[in-house]
Simulated assay, not measured.
Amino acid sequence: MDSPNEDLSFEDALKRLEQIVQRLETGDARLDEAITLYEEGTRLRQRCTDRLDAAQSRIEAIRLDADGRPAGTRPFAAG
């Protein structure tokens, strides 16, 4: 299922997640709204985690030369 948050940048997704947490913490949301917000927040959290994991993998894929300087990258094989 595609989500309207699918195309958000990491920063925008994190900002939206913070808004959701703030809204839920106030306790003002009706139960059905709170459930919907919680589901959206769960998807956003996973999306942010996936992006952080991908960034870490890209960083780890940087090859170093004999002096420890970046010498290029190698493709990251996920999975």
Rank of each mutant, 00 (worst) to 15 (best):
M1P: 14
D2I: 14
D2W: 09
D2H: 10
S3I: 09
P4H: 09
P4G: 02
N5T: 15
N5I: 03
E6M: 12
E6S: 14
L8I: 00
L8S: 03
L8T: 02
F10K: 10
F10G: 06
F10E: 08
E11Q: 13
E11K: 09
D12S: 07
D12T: 09
D12F: 04
D12G: 08
D12L: 11
D12W: 01
A13S: 11
A13K: 10
A13D: 00
L14H: 11
K15Q: 12
K15P: 03
R16C: 03
R16G: 01
R16F: 06
L17S: 03
E18Q: 13
Q19W: 03
V21D: 08
V21E: 09
V21Y: 00
Q22P: 01
R23W: 06
L24N: 00
L24E: 04
E25L: 12
T26E: 00
T26V: 00
G27V: 03
G27H: 00
G27C: 05
D28R: 03
D28K: 02
D28I: 01
A29T: 05
A29G: 02
A29V: 03
R30Y: 10
R30I: 14
L31W: 12
L31M: 15
L31H: 13
D32F: 07
E33C: 09
E33N: 13
E33S: 09
A34W: 02
A34F: 10
I35P: 01
T36R: 15
L37P: 02
L37D: 00
L37R: 02
E39G: 10
E40V: 08
T42C: 07
T42M: 09
R43Y: 10
R43M: 10
R43T: 04
L44I: 04
Q46P: 06
Q46H: 09
Q46D: 11
Q46C: 00
R47I: 00
C48W: 04
C48Q: 01
T49Q: 12
D50F: 09
L52N: 01
L52H: 04
D53V: 11
A54S: 08
S57A: 15
S57Q: 15
R58M: 06
E60M: 08
E60F: 14
I62W: 08
R63T: 13
L64D: 03
L64G: 04
D65A: 02
D65E: 01
D65M: 02
A66Y: 02
A66H: 10
D67C: 10
G68E: 03
R69N: 15
R69G: 03
R69Y: 13
P70C: 12
P70N: 05
A71S: 14
A71C: 09
A71M: 11
A71L: 07
A71Y: 05
G72N: 04
G72Q: 00
P75V: 02
F76V: 11
F76M: 07
F76L: 03
F76I: 08
A77V: 15
A78E: 07
A78T: 10
G79D: 06
